[in-house]
């Protein structure tokens, strides 16, 4: 079911590393926007999971980042660009259970090595680029049914 919109709806959120207090706000606002547009519940669920995991990664591992979304009639694209340390071994990072999170983050119930795999699972297209010392860019596309 394509959305009854004429042009792409865009939005951005700035994410600040270490700021656990506001984690989830970007995802909650995007979820609200999608609900307002009448997007399929299953799609909203997938977008919320993927976006929240992306937010958490920026907050846990990086200094700062941006989350951009682009809602088109038949899909949503979410792009996360961070100014983080970069990922040395992307293949390893994509493995479920692998994590470089410090102990205090694990004690909060994060750092289980499920973030990137959850993002990929909930996307129809998933792309990750990373340069050590510069940052990481993740692009996700979810098609509407």
């Amino acid at each position: 079911m394509a959305l009854n919109i004429n042009e792409t709806i865009e939005g951005s959120f700035q994410l600040v590393g270490g700021n656990f207090a506001t984690a989830g706000e970007a995802s909650a606002q995007l979820k609200h926007t999608l609900e307002g547009l009448g997007v399929d519940e299953g799609i909203i669920r997938r977008a919320a999971i993927a976006t929240f995991e992306a937010e958490m990664n920026v907050i846990i591992y990086t200094a700062a980042g941006w989350l951009h979304y682009y809602i088109s009639p038949d899909h949503i694209k979410i792009k996360i660009v961070d100014m983080g340390p970069g990922i040395e071994n992307i293949e390893l990072a994509m493995q479920e259970g692998y994590s470089t999170a410090p102990d205090w983050v694990r004690e909060m119930g994060w750092g289980a090595g499920m973030g990137l795999p959850n993002m990929k699972k909930n996307s129809d297209e998933f792309k990750i680029d990373s340069v050590v010392g510069e940052g990481t860019t993740v692009e996700m596309k979810i098609n509407f049914p």
């Binding site: 656990f20 984690a23 979820k31 999971i49 119930g109």
Partner: peptide
């Protein structure tokens, strides 16, 4: 057993 702020976001999003 988690009691920190992020549990609220998780419960809300899901």
């Amino acid at each position: 057993l988690q009691t920190h702020l992020n549990i609220v976001a998780v419960a809300g999003l899901k």
